[in-house]
């Protein structure tokens, strides 16, 4: 029986959680057919014995997630991201295996590479799926509006291309014997035209929004650029990052890099403090990963109240400084 194949993204010798989540969906679709995985690697990195061992160990370890055969594609051009090359290799492997389906994580790169596979092979692609069932047609559930809405859909394809929504399905472990195979893909010059030529590191300083343990955000209710001083103060006291809603970046009060939302940054802090934010679906799509949400809002009926764990009703311009003051006072006693 022909297998399914999944693209595994990895860094520093570790497969991404999003790729392992993808394997859970791929296995359930495969329903007993073999699961093959593709791991891309570059001999430049493999020159270092440590790097080579790490990629092999990673490929071997995929058995814990139900992979029967892991294919390591080695090519020196893969030392920097080249999405057409990735798509060419994934397409070649799928052809070679006569794969019944191709999976990747619905990450930026996963979606991009799969769209290129679809464009090259003239196959339909369903992105950000959370469940896929084999059949004629294939039926699936996918996310719309950054996960604020779900779509039930039918996919008519001899080789379905599917990406799996990040952090929407659990990783499943099992025991399978993994066979690791290496191959050198054939790449054409035009597949390397689009290629990362340089990486510019972000300007340092401050806590990264995506990684922060606490995020304090302001919305329309903050009222002005200057109004963010009290938000910054509280974020500073909590060792957290400052965020904001889309209204705020559209008004030019804060840079877009601070925006939490469907078109901004997706965050997953222990605590999210939303000040003067109504809770539009566009915003909630960015903060639904937060473990706890505290809403500070003058409107007790604002939509955010239905999506929060804690709420304080009233004027954020009085409440936020009062919380900062209380934190300082407590620290004073403790010290």
């Amino acid at each position: 029986m022909a297998p399914v194949v999944a693209l595994i993204e990895h860094a520093d010798g570790k497969a991404f959680d999003t790729s392992l989540q993808t394997l859970a969906v791929a296995r359930s679709f495969a329903a007993g057919q073999a699961v093959h995985a593709l791991v891309l690697s570059s001999p430049i990195r493999l020159d270092l014995e440590l790097g080579r061992n790490a990629v092999f160990a990673l490929a071997n370890d995929l058995g814990h997630y139900g992979v029967n055969v892991a294919h390591i594609a080695e090519h020196e051009a893969l030392d920097s991201f080249a999405p057409d090359a990735w798509a060419a290799i994934l397409g070649q492997l799928a052809d070679q295996l006569d794969a019944t389906a191709v999976f990747a994580a619905g990450t930026e790169r996963g979606n991009e590479v799969m769209a290129r596979v679809g464009a090259r092979a003239n196959l339909p692609l369903a992105t950000n799926c959370i469940a896929v069932s084999a059949g004629d047609p294939i039926t699936l559930t996918r996310q719309r509006w950054g996960g604020s809405l779900l779509e039930e859909a039918r996919l008519n394809s001899t080789r379905p291309l599917v990406t799996v929504a990040p952090h929407a399905v659990p990783i499943e472990t099992t025991e399978a014997e993994t066979k690791v195979e290496t191959f050198t893909p054939q790449l054409k010059e035009q597949e390397l035209v689009v290629r990362v030529i340089e990486h510019v590191a972000a300007a340092g300083g401050g806590v990264s929004l995506a990684e922060a343990r606490v995020v304090v955000s302001g919305g329309r209710g903050v009222g002005s650029k200057e109004g963010f001083a009290i938000i910054e103060e509280l974020a500073g006291l909590l060792g957290g990052a400052v965020g904001c809603s889309r209204v705020v970046t559209s008004a030019g009060w804060r840079p877009h890099t601070d925006q939490v939302g469907q078109t901004g940054t997706k965050i997953a802090p222990e605590l999210y403090i939303a000040c003067g934010i109504s809770g539009a679906t566009q915003h909630m799509a960015g903060c639904k990963g937060a473990k706890r949400i505290l809403a500070i809002n003058s409107d007790a009926e604002a939509p955010i109240m239905l999506n929060s764990d804690y709420a304080v009703v009233g004027d954020l311009k009085e409440i936020v400084p009062a919380i900062s003051k209380e934190i300082r006072a407590n620290r004073g006693h403790a010290g």
Binding site: T139, E152, A153, N307, D309, A311
Partner: peptide, 18 residues
Amino acid sequence: LELASLVVPAGQGRRAEV
């Protein structure tokens, strides 16, 4: 890729503790 129907996901249902 054919839309069959839309579904509003089950609400997080976290009624905030005031």
